[in-house]
Design a protein around this nucleic acid. Structure first.
Length: 330
DNA sequence: TAGGCCATCTGGTCCT
DNA sequence: AGGACCAGATGGCCTA
C-alpha cells in the first residue's frame, strides 16, 4: 500500500526543489555523524546558498498561492537563515537525544516484563500494553493475597495483546499457549478473545512462541547468558547522559531450557552460563514465598512441571534480590 | 507488495 | 530566546 501523507508543510516551501533531498540522500554515505539517518535539512545547510530569502523561493515557486494572512513574515536574510538552520540542527540533535532516552526507558521496561528477549523485542505499543496488564495482574495478586493461578494470570497478561505477543507471554510463563487458547475458545472467555481469535491460531510448538518470534532453538543460537542482579539493584546508573531513567541491567530470571524449564546446574542452582531465550518473571514464585504458601503454578500446568521447588524460599537469593527478600520477609 | 514498526525531521506550543 | 514536549510526515526495513 502506498502511504498517502500530506506533504510536509514548510520544508517544501523552504526549499524550492527536490534536488536538495536527492543531494542530501546521495551524500549520506559521506556523512560523519554517528547517525546515518542524519537530517536532510542539516545536510542541506550548505545547499541552495544562492537563495537569500525563503520568501523569494515561495514567490518563485508558486505564484498561484493565495496570499498569506496576518503579519508579513520577516524577510529571511542570509544571516537569519543561517541562524535558523543552526537552531534547527541543534533542535534536531536534542530531539534525537530525547527519543533515544525514551527508547532507553522503554528498553528498561521491556527488561522487567514477564518475558524478555534481546533478539526479539516487543514493539513499543506491545510493551506498554503488557506493562499495563502486568501491573494490573500483580495488583490483583496483591489485593487478593493469592498466588496467581497459571492460566488466569497469563490471561490477564495477554489481554489486548497481539497473538504473537500472547503466545510469547504464555510460552515464557510455561503455560502451553495451545491449551490456553483452546480452552479459552471452549470457555468463550472474553479475555484475549479479540487478541487471539481462535480461527487464526497458528501455534506450532507447545510452550514456544509463534512467529515472528521464531522458536526456542533458533533463539538459543543467538543469546547470551544474562547478568543476574537483584531486582532493585542500587548500583543502577545511567548509561545515557540524557536518560534520567537508570538502565535496568538485569534481574532477570534464570535461563529456560527448550522445554521452557530452567536449566540447572548439578547443585540445583540455575545455570547462568547456559544459553537461553526468553526470560520469564514468576510472580507466583516470589509471592508464594511472600504469603508463606507454595505456588499453584505447577499444578495448573501439568504439561510443564517445574523440576525444582519454585517457592520463594528455594529460589536463589541473588536472583530475587536482598531488597525483595526483605520485603517478602516483612 | 501491503502493512507494521521504527527513526528522524519538523513546526507548533508551552514553559522557564 | 531557547529548551522540552508533542504530533504529523516521511522513508527505510522487515515480514507474511
Amino acid at each position: 500500500m502506498t502511504k498517502t501523507y500530506a506533504k510536509p508543510k514548510e520544508m517544501s516551501e523552504l526549499v524550492s526543489s527536490q534536488s536538495w533531498m536527492d543531494e542530501a540522500l546521495s551524500s549520506q554515505d559521506e556523512m560523519k555523524e554517528e547517525d546515518s539517518r542524519q537530517a536532510p535539512y542539516e545536510m542541506m545547510a550548505g545547499l541552495n546558498e544562492e537563495h537569500d530569502s525563503i520568501e523569494d523561493e515561495e514567490e518563485e515557486e508558486d505564484g498561484e498561492k493565495p496570499k498569506r494572512r496576518g503579519p508579513k513574515k520577516k524577510k529571511m536574510t542570509k544571516a537569519r537563515l543561517e541562524r535558523f538552520r543552526a537552531r534547527r540542527v541543534k533542535a534536531n540533535a536534542r530531539e534525537r537525544t530525547r527519543m533515544h532516552g525514551l527508547n532507553d526507558a522503554l528498553d528498561n521496561l521491556r527488561r522487567v516484563m514477564p518475558c524478555y528477549s534481546k533478539t526479539q523485542k516487543l514493539s513499543k505499543i506491545e510493551t506498554l500494553r503488557l506493562a499495563r496488564n502486568y501491573i494490573w495482574a500483580l495488583s490483583e495478586v496483591l489485593e487478593t493475597g493469592q498466588t496467581p493461578e497459571g492460566k488466569g494470570f497469563v490471561e490477564m497478561l495477554c489481554k489486548g495483546l497481539s497473538q504473537p505477543t500472547s503466545n510469547l507471554v504464555a510460552g515464557c510463563l510455561q503455560l502451553g499457549p495451545q491449551s490456553l487458547f483452546l480452552e479459552k475458545h471452549e470457555e468463550k472467555s472474553p479475555v484475549c478473545d479479540s487478541a487471539i481469535p481462535s480461527h487464526t491460531f497458528q501455534y506450532q510448538s507447545p510452550g514456544l512462541p509463534s512467529p515472528p518470534y521464531g522458536n526456542m532453538e533458533t533463539h538459543l543460537l543467538h543469546l547470551k547468558p544474562p547478568t543476574f542482579k537483584s531486582l532493585v539493584d542500587p548500583s543502577f546508573g545511567s548509561h545515557h547522559p540524557d536518560c534520567t531513567t537508570p538502565p535496568y541491567e538485569g534481574p532477570l530470571t534464570p535461563p529456560l531450557s527448550i522445554s521452557g524449564n530452567f536449566s540447572l546446574k548439578q547443585d540445583g542452582s540455575p545455570d547462568l552460563d547456559k544459553s537461553y531465550t526468553f526470560m520469564a518473571h514468576y510472580p507466583s514464585v516470589s509471592l508464594a514465598g511472600a504469603h508463606g504458601h507454595t505456588s499453584h503454578f505447577q499444578s495448573t500446568v501439568p504439561r510443564y512441571e517445574l523440576p525444582i521447588d519454585m517457592s520463594y524460599e528455594s529460589y536463589p537469593h541473588h536472583v530475587v534480590g536482598p531488597q525483595l527478600n526483605a520485603i517478602f520477609n516483612e
